[in-house]
Computed example of a mutant assay.
Amino acid sequence: MNTRKIVTGAVLASVLGVAALAHSGATGVVKSRMEAMKEMQTAVKAIAPMMSGTAAYDASVVQDAAETFGRHSGEALTASFPEGSIEPPSEALPVIWQDWDHFEALARQLGIMAQGLSLASENGLHGGSGMMGNGMMMGSGSGMMMGGSPNMMGMTAEQIGQMPADGAFAMTTQVCAACHDRFREEDD
């Protein structure tokens, strides 16, 4: 199994933890944001098999997923978390409002990643396993850190758009995972 499949699987498992969200009883802004998270989960599920090479690649499906991520990023994401909106069944943690700048930065970063993924969709998948192993995506200096915050070194959507789509997808899901790891209650 190559590194790309291992990393994509690990990131996907983290992001798809959202599947445990129980929408019953949710109302108002909590229900709206849970529905937005469900839409992003559906987008991840739609393209993850393509990114791991287990389904045929379709750039239009990747673009649709990127649109979904973009629609629920930035101000749209932060607006769905008014202070104190943690009533059950929300899994949001109070640390969101204690570390709002970090949360807001991740929301903005998701938008950049979504734009980059859309641009990268036409590039197809990386032909080999070298990309994930060369430090471009993982490691100490220039990419995303597993389980941590995204490296906010200022990559633009255009720079991300030069990557193969699976690399841009991995970066996008890393932003999701970083936010979930910090700001969402762990599933039992």
Score class of each variant (00 low, 15 high):
T8R: 00
G148S: 07
M113R: 05
D101R: 09
E186I: 03
L125W: 08
S121K: 06
V30T: 10
N151M: 07
F169M: 03
T173W: 00
M131S: 09
M152D: 07
A76L: 10
M113W: 04
D187Y: 10
T68P: 03
I86T: 14
D181K: 04
G154D: 00
L12A: 01
A48S: 01
T173S: 02
F183I: 00
L21H: 06
L125G: 09
G9P: 03
L21W: 06
D58C: 09
E91T: 12
V18Y: 02
A157Q: 05
D181V: 04
L21C: 08
R108H: 11
A46N: 08
A59K: 12
V29G: 06
M146H: 02
T78V: 15
G161L: 02
T172P: 01
H126I: 14
A59R: 10
D99N: 13
E122I: 15
V95P: 01
A105H: 04
M37F: 11
L93Q: 02
V30F: 06
P89L: 07
M40K: 04
L125F: 12
T3N: 07
M137T: 14
V11W: 04
F69V: 13
G17C: 03
G139Q: 10
A22E: 14
R4A: 14
G141D: 13
M131Y: 12
I96A: 11
G130L: 07
A105T: 06
L77S: 06
P88Y: 09
R4H: 14
D101A: 15
P164D: 08
V18A: 04
D58A: 10
S142H: 12
G139H: 09
C176N: 01
G84E: 10
M40V: 07
T27F: 06
G128K: 08
A48W: 00
G28Q: 12
S149C: 11
T78N: 11
A55N: 14
S52E: 04
G147S: 06
R108S: 13
A157Y: 04
P88E: 11
M37D: 14
T8G: 00
L93P: 01
F183R: 00
G139C: 11
E87K: 10
L119A: 08
S24M: 12
A19W: 03
H126G: 13
A66G: 08
V44Q: 00
T173F: 00
F169N: 02
D188H: 03
T78F: 12
S118W: 02
L77G: 03
G139T: 12
G9E: 05
M51A: 10
E87C: 10
K31N: 12
A92L: 09
R4L: 10
G130W: 11
S121P: 08
M144N: 12
I47W: 01
N134M: 11
H23G: 14
V62L: 09
F103V: 10
L16A: 05
N151Y: 03
Q41R: 14
